[in-house]
Nucleic acid binder design. Structure first.
Lengths: 107, 107
DNA sequence: ACGCTCTATGAGTACTTACTCATACAGTCA
DNA sequence: TGACTGTATGAGTAAGTACTCATAGAGCGT
């Protein structure tokens, strides 16, 4: 079964999964340590059901992986490159803001 | 005026701007050459007005820059790192697909 | 001035998304 | 078994997004 998705579609699926601010925060936490839903919820001040759905989106995109451990479901980053994407996004955002500030000054 | 946006929010603004499949396609084209709306529209098979709005989103995020040249408005990548983000997204997507295939085989 | 080309935007619609509440499901321990 | 903890999901709602059509604006040429 070969995927018929275009390259642009493949990329956007990963990026859409990552792009939500709460999911960015989840990834930032998981970049440091393995955590479960019950630890992330208070750390991010998110409703348990809401967080569960965000985590599901990340798992389905293949950005994080999960496994059961007793009652808990643990999560960790599946591919370290997603953290690199976050770093680059940060850098682009920073430059964008600086450029806008520069335009205002010289104007 | 200092921005009060959280790091997660800054990142997600860039990623949300990039994440749409049509905007990924726009960036892929602009990664190779400078183009105007009128050249991109037929290349991407997008409605002129629809394309114009996608380009606006990318400009507002600071991902691309635009300048007038007669009737045309040209666009180019503002920060080459967005292309790197697309490459990484592609790599993550590829690995995700392979991992899922592996799971199916060993199952 | 006029017509022509290219781009931007208002308005309307269909679709998707995030969120919350309530509830079901899964696993542990007494 | 029942009570308890942790997770997933159905249902409903509010908000956001992408798309199209029509139209306005901006700049070129005659």
């Amino acid at each position: 079964m070969i995927s018929h998705k275009t390259p642009a579609h493949l990329k956007s699926e990963i990026l859409e999964a990552i792009a939500h601010p709460n999911r960015v925060r989840i990834l930032e936490h998981l970049g440091k340590e393995i955590l479960c839903n019950c630890e992330l919820a208070p750390a991010l001040s998110l409703e348990q059901s809401n967080l569960s759905r965000h985590l599901k989106i990340l798992v389905q995109a293949g950005v994080i992986v999960s496994w059961k451990e007793g009652l808990r479901v643990n999560f960790k980053i599946a591919d370290e490159r997603v953290l690199k994407i976050l770093d680059l996004a940060q850098a682009v955002a920073k430059r964008s803001i600086e450029t806008k500030a520069g335009v205002l000054e010289e104007g």
